[in-house]
């Protein structure tokens, strides 16, 4: 998967509403997600239509934010529901586990538990 989508760098991003040189985006246009991206010692605000891998989006009337998934998830729907697992973990009903429930086997290709 491509690392980051729906974003351009620096202050002239499409989704940025207010911006500062040092902090990047300070607020986003409506319906865009604010993601705080760390680049070395810097941390800048980035506005995007979908959060980067390893993060999920939470929408609310005031603002939309990106939040980190659990460590064993490559992507997730919310904090407790993964949609794709990291290597060494296998997905079953939103959980990334090292082993599969009884009666299911691990598929390394999809990183899922399958029947």
């Amino acid at each position: 998967h491509k690392p980051i989508s729906g974003v351009s760098s620096g202050c002239q991003q499409g989704g940025c509403l207010t911006c500062s040189d040092y902090n990047g985006c300070l607020s986003c246009k409506p319906r865009f997600f604010m993601h705080l991206e760390r680049i070395g010692m810097k941390q800048i605000g980035v506005c995007m239509t979908s959060c980067p891998p390893g993060f999920y989006g939470t929408r609310s009337p005031e603002r939309n934010t990106c939040t980190k998934c659990r460590s064993e998830c490559d992507s997730c729907f919310n904090k407790n529901f993964c949609t794709h697992c990291r290597a060494g973990f296998y997905l079953h009903l939103g959980k990334c586990q090292e082993n599969c429930p009884e009666g299911m086997v691990r598929s390394d290709a999809q990183r899922e538990c399958i029947l």
Binding site: Y22, N23, G24, L26, M34, L36, M41, K42, Q43, I44, G45, T65, T67, K68
Partner: peptide
């Protein structure tokens, strides 16, 4: 070591 944090990273919802 000097480490920058965005003002929004210090909120209740920050991870």
């Amino acid at each position: 070591k000097l480490m920058q944090y965005h003002p929004l990273s210090l909120c209740n919802t920050s991870e």
